[in-house]
């Protein structure tokens, strides 16, 4: 039976893959079914994952094993349940309490940690001596890095009109941002293409091999 289920799994994967790719021709019922299966399975997966990996170990197990030690966890438990009041419009305002706690925590953590990691550390990393003795390209690169960072920051300063020298500096910043966006686009495109290659490899190395084996069995 395990062997049958393995083959069935390969064919299920094949049909779901082809159903999704059928959208390249036009929207059709096969694509819609595969899309809804994807939505349902994703939601189900995250539901089960959340219960097993977040709520059971961090809340239910702790409360069950040592309630006197972890009694304060009742508070996030209750706040979590209040979050579910969003499902009924009349009591939805109760969800503001857990949301406010989450927003407050995120804002507090964000303020201090972003200041440290995204502002101070990035600024520190930019304060370098760009000139590398005997290495022309590293020097050029470092100059580009420092210029790109500074002019990019100038571009994001909207309290002064972008004209004159300031406008020229901001324009240089735009050029660096465009290179950055182009590089990001190129990387994203390559990541998607590598996924596409993965799908083609599945069809060629797993499904097609299975198909030829089945045909061989049928005719021998």
């Amino acid at each position: 039976m395990a062997g049958f289920m393995t083959v069935f799994g390969i064919w299920l994967g094949f049909f779901l893959t082809m159903a999704i790719y059928s959208f390249l021709y036009k929207d059709n019922p096969f694509y819609k079914v595969a899309e809804q299966i994807f939505i349902g399975l994703s939601a189900g997966y995250w539901f089960v994952y959340t219960i097993y990996n977040i709520l059971i170990p961090n809340l239910f197990n702790k409360l069950a094993e040592a309630p006197s030690k972890h009694y304060l966890l009742i508070i996030p438990g209750i706040l979590g349940l209040l979050m579910l009041t969003q499902l009924t419009p009349k009591s939805a305002w109760l969800s503001r309490y857990p949301i406010s706690l989450m927003i407050g925590t995120t804002a507090g953590i964000g303020m201090v940690r972003y200041l440290s990691s995204d502002v101070i550390k990035q600024a520190t990393a930019t304060m370098i001596n760009p000139f590398v003795a005997g290495d022309f390209w590293s020097t050029i690169g470092n100059l580009m890095l420092v210029t790109g960072t500074l002019t990019g920051i100038v571009y994001f300063f909207f309290s002064k009109k972008h004209e004159g020298v300031f406008g020229g500096v901001a324009k240089t910043g735009v050029y660096f941002l465009m290179i950055s966006f182009g590089a990001a686009f190129g990387y994203t495109a390559m990541a998607r293409i590598s996924l596409l290659i993965g799908r083609v490899m599945f069809l060629k190395d797993i499904w097609f091999v299975n198909l030829t084996e089945l045909i061989a069995k049928l005719f021998t």
């Binding site: 580009m144 790109g148 960072t149 990019g152 920051i153 571009y155 994001f156 660096f176 941002l177 590089a183």
Partner: peptide, 17 residues
């Protein structure tokens, strides 16, 4: 990726921060 891209990304990260 190492130089002009990092420069642009760094400007975005600092300003977003």
């Amino acid at each position: 990726m190492k130089y002009p891209n990092t420069g642009g990304q760094r400007a975005i990260i600092i300003c977003a921060g």
